[in-house]
Design a protein around this nucleic acid. Structure first.
Lengths: 108, 108
DNA sequence: ACGACATATAAGGCGTGGCTTATATGTTGA
DNA sequence: TCAACATATAAGCCACGCCTTATATGTCGT
């Protein structure tokens, strides 16, 4: 497993509603800090701080272009969450076993 | 959908490492507050408070028996997490569609 | 009924986290 | 080069969360 980012960081990053909202917005497409700031009723530094948290958790990636910094979702960042869930597959009955198989395929 | 418990409560409940540890212990089997307190190096009230948070999030159930209160995992409580993940199935490529199908089956 | 036990709740301390404003860093275009 | 722009970082404030100890509630056994 080359998941460099801790389960804990992912859980903590997603615990905040504002941060989840930023993440969810990014799933609709890459966007610059500027754009995100316009969409939410929080200051630009607040947005930057949320993005930093998401980035440290491995949930988003940044792409610098001139004076703009574009952020996008890093799908692999959700892996720790899925792994944590599958760890308790016993509680998802036998159907979870099929999910487990699917996830193995995804290792590609 | 009769998921009475909010996504937010689930995310917040699982954000704390101690609380995840309590939850994980409960996946190994039902146990009383007493037992849990013995396993972790936190006070009994702390354990009770974590259990209350997990219960409010719908992640655990309690069963009272005499002066003991036994807690156990409520598998359905993880549903909001899974739902949240599937909402971004686009980032899990086409394989996620199959997961989606699986989850529909689980509605039973 | 009473003392020991099991758990929950109350109250307070204290660190953390998310927000703000102010400022620093860096880039673009005239 | 300089002003406007885009973002990040710094500093401080405040609320919230997790912990503690103390206490309340309720149950068991004798």
């Amino acid at each position: 497993m080359l998941s460099v980012h801790s389960q804990d960081a992912v859980f903590r990053a997603l615990a905040d509603p504002s941060r989840r909202a930023v993440f969810e917005q990014l799933t609709r497409g890459e966007s610059a800090v500027n754009d995100l700031t316009a969409r939410f009723s929080i200051s630009q530094p607040a947005v930057s701080q949320h993005l930093a948290a998401l980035r440290k958790a491995g949930l988003v990636l940044e792409r610098r272009e001139g004076r703009h910094v574009y952020y996008r979702v890093e799908p692999k960042g959700l892996r720790p969450l899925v792994d944590w869930l599958t760890h308790y597959q016993a509680f998802w009955t036998d159907r979870m076993e099929r999910l487990q198989a699917l996830l193995k395929e995804m290792d590609e």
